[in-house]
Design a protein around this nucleic acid. Structure first.
Lengths: 160, 160
DNA sequence: ATACCTGCAAACAATTTGCACAAAC
DNA sequence: GTTTGTGCAAATTGTTTGCAGGTAT
């Protein structure tokens, strides 16, 4: 139980090159193809320092002033793929627009700064213990959960 | 810490009449008016046994075959109010349509059955402990969190 | 070769909004 | 009588889809 309680250990931030390489590998392994538009989308995603929306990603790609830029459909389709394969998290925002950010696949939670948007990932979530407890009390079989934590990062607190 | 770990105590289901009365009181206290359409919306909401969508609520209101039924705008506006005042929870579904269900205001979490949609509320969430731990480790000030738990209820398990 | 992928523009679906009227306090 | 709420229909917005070519493997 101590281990569970001790959960919530921050994880090192994403290394863009490592991430890109890993995603490309995973895509290929899944029978997908590494195309030019896809690559551009991946590269743009991994450079964000805060959660982004699909439309922002699309707009940013336009503004890169290349001869050719990925179309809106490609952006949405690629995002979907990445969410399904676990390389991107879809945030449930209060408004209608979905937020996204890059991550490593697996059971990881995140804390998002409400001021600057910075995301910190942490592993070892103690919710599992509560799940077991709940299951016993209610008769439910717990299949999963979503957790979103928000707050203000140290930097933003210092500024206020 | 034991108390926190022991968290996850189921809460009794909502009593429709109690809920209606409480909501009406709260609305009035907030400077709002108890109108006929509002009442119809409230009454319909409290009878649901599983999360519902705004459009379903609207459709159901239409099918009640009254001389007058609340308009779509009223349904959405009322839902918004209730969510803001904490009497209704907005579920973050995987698709674009938002789910809703009645609850009591306050820090309560819910577990939703993926088969029948039944919702069980529970209090005493041990996440608080993890929050403190996290805050210490990351320098964040934790402002809040959202948690959604899903699984299969005892009844649905028996049926399979 | 043959999947798979792309871009475009049209289609969609959920939700929001402007406004003139109505109702509650 | 003033503030708050309502209904309608039109407008918005985020996202998805059909299809006629392209392109990676």
């Amino acid at each position: 139980l101590e281990d569970i309680v001790a959960g919530g250990t921050p994880i090192a931030p994403i290394n863009p090159d490592q991430w890109l390489q890993a995603v490309r590998h995973a895509l290929r392994a899944g029978g997908h193809r590494i195309t030019w538009p896809r690559n551009r989308v991946l590269q743009t995603i991994v450079r964000y320092q805060a959660p982004f929306t699909a439309e922002k990603l699309y707009a940013d790609l336009q503004h890169l002033q290349m001869q050719q830029t990925p179309g809106r459909a490609t952006v949405y389709r690629t995002l979907d793929q990445l969410v399904h394969s676990g390389w991107v998290v879809r945030l449930h925002t209060s408004n209608s627009e979905a937020g996204y950010y890059a991550t490593w696949p697996g059971h990881i939670h995140h804390i998002v700064c409400t001021s600057c948007g910075k995301v910190i990932a942490f592993a070892g979530c103690m919710i599992e213990g509560m799940m077991t407890h709940l299951a016993r009390q209610t008769g439910f079989t717990v299949e999963g959960h979503t957790l979103q934590v928000y707050g203000r990062c140290a930097q933003c607190q210092a500024l206020s």
